[in-house]
């Protein structure tokens, strides 16, 4: 089963990458980044059966970072929405001169 968990993690990561590149909605892009983080978590847990309990500890830290990233990212989205009235990333031109 471990041998199948790791390819599953790779597939989930690839789908997450696809979503980040192909979508324009900033919130859905964030969801896809969470999907990538979750795929990495799956790989960590699967490999902890072979390497040791540290793999599960690292999942803990990854989840904390994901929570912090979601909070700050969504705050940025709200701040940008206040100016642009949209969350479509191709309409964001805050830093364009």
């Amino acid at each position: 089963m471990l041998t199948y968990a790791l390819p599953l993690s790779a597939a989930l990561f690839a789908i997450g990458t696809l979503g980040v590149v192909v979508r324009r909605n900033a919130i859905v892009m964030f969801l896809c980044i969470e999907l990538q983080l979750n795929a990495v978590n799956l790989a960590f847990v699967a490999l902890s059966r072979q390497v040791g309990i540290e793999g599960q500890l690292f999942v803990f830290f990854v989840m904390t970072v994901a929570a912090a990233e979601a909070a700050v990212g969504l705050a940025i989205i709200i701040a940008v929405f206040r100016h642009q009235r949209t969350v479509q990333v191709d309409r964001f031109n805050l830093l364009r001169w």
Binding site: P7, S9, A10, A11, F13, A14, I15, T17, L18, V21, V22, R23, R24, N25, V28, Q88
Partner: peptide
Amino acid sequence: DLKFGLWSLLALSVSGLTGGLLW
């Protein structure tokens, strides 16, 4: 809001490469 055309080609190749490499 899906980007089509050249974008989807790029996206498929990027994610295919990533997934294949990880695999």
